[in-house]
Design a binder for these strands. Sequence first.
DNA 1: CGGGAAGTTGAATATCATCAACGGTAGTGG
DNA 2: CCACTACCGTTGATGATATTCAACTTCCCG
Lengths: 262, 262
Amino acid sequence: MTDQPCSTCPLGRFCLPNDLDPAELPALDAVAHRRLRLKKGALVYRVGDPVMAIYAVRLGTLKSHVATEDGRSQIVGFHLQGEILGMDSVFGPFHLSSATALEDTQLCVLPVSALRAALPRLPSLRRQLVLALAQEAQHDRVMMTTIGLMTAEERLVAFLLGLSKRLSARGFAANEFVLRMSREEIGSYLGLKLETISRLLSRLAEAGMIAVHHRRIRLLQPDALRSIHRRSRSVPALEPTDRCTAPGSGPAPAILDTLATP
Amino acid sequence: MTDQPCSTCPLGRFCLPNDLDPAELPALDAVAHRRLRLKKGALVYRVGDPVMAIYAVRLGTLKSHVATEDGRSQIVGFHLQGEILGMDSVFGPFHLSSATALEDTQLCVLPVSALRAALPRLPSLRRQLVLALAQEAQHDRVMMTTIGLMTAEERLVAFLLGLSKRLSARGFAANEFVLRMSREEIGSYLGLKLETISRLLSRLAEAGMIAVHHRRIRLLQPDALRSIHRRSRSVPALEPTDRCTAPGSGPAPAILDTLATP
DNA sequence: CGGGAAGTTGAATATCATCAACGGTAGTGG
DNA sequence: CCACTACCGTTGATGATATTCAACTTCCCG
């Protein structure tokens, strides 16, 4: 039940086809032909499930999350349109996090079996996937220092600016957007409590830097926000992962090229 | 100036040669022939340096660290004997963290140029390096939830148990060891202050769970420590990266095999 | 519409950070 | 080899930041 092949998908450069060798597009169509439709709140997979496939977000937003034995939980990532989902387990055959749709969502399914069969002849696609894996790693590195080094306000500002950047890279407005997640989910992602998020949003609004109406956010003074962010940012500046910010740009990847291009 | 080739290195299974196709050992010897001797406190590389090589720790201990524009800093990893260093930058040709020796240290140098030339004919070595990269990613994921979800005491206990496990995997005593890092460095790694580390060590000692003499630590009640750790641990249990805990064991890596074995 | 979830705000509290003083150890150089 | 000093570590008192508990409001969803 193919809806629309990757070769003509409007997401195009925001997703796997970006930077892909055009000759490999038909093969990608074949691998990723299946679609998955999820209602808000539906689970894609949960901790411990065997890794049957990886997924590309066609429409909607999702969260990845983990839990502790005594019931605490943390969100380890949000996934927007065009992003790759399901590569949380690098070693074992089981997922190490769960994934849940934050709204009605459509995913493109790339079965592991199909990938295993097709990838040897698709060096460019394999490179894209290794890139996604590496970007997820970089995201975790950034979040680790975000939570370890920044104050609550700095974390929230970093979150808002990061979201703004990812959304604008996808063609949405940079300074006005709707949060797909609750205050509690933002807090869980940033190592804070929901009340703290609520208070901080009010405080930033009171200071005139943002406007908050429910989940609609407007960045009124992006520069003021950036200056809060800048002082707490690691040097050189790193952003949470966004695989679409710089399509095909930048100098040649060093380690990645060495490892991923046989 | 070759000291000792990897093929006869006593580290053996604790380092790159572990699980390596024996046929590739001579090639590894050729790539990793250079040694680097560092005095305590010496920098291996710093943020922004071009990635000239990756390194294997032959002897000693090091830390990886990042800094913010306003002077805060965080340690993002400690590196023991047999571990791989320098793969912090996956994309760009520049290091994203700095590396400093915590004591007099010897490193084996694997120049990127030599790797680039040799790896296409060394699939098994390439797999080892991708594995190291993935384990670093997993480490960051675990630390992100460690800092985001755990109390100060739980973080410190997790640190001590993790260190114990890594050391015992290398043939050292599991319940008695010497910290190579200061209280401040432990705190920086865990998102805490040095005074907090000091107080917590005293508290754990008072409770009879550990004995502390300067930097010598004895785990007196490992089970009590583990029960503190267990309740805050994510399920399924993840440990901070240790590439030597399970040599050649476990089921076939899923995503990793698919991506790294062409 | 009605009910439940999500969000806001206030007050009290806990945890960890900061400031400060002191003791000990190890490393240095005479 | 010993003495000096600088760094490391400990502990106490105080304070800031974020959490917890709680009451109330608003908004969606059914």
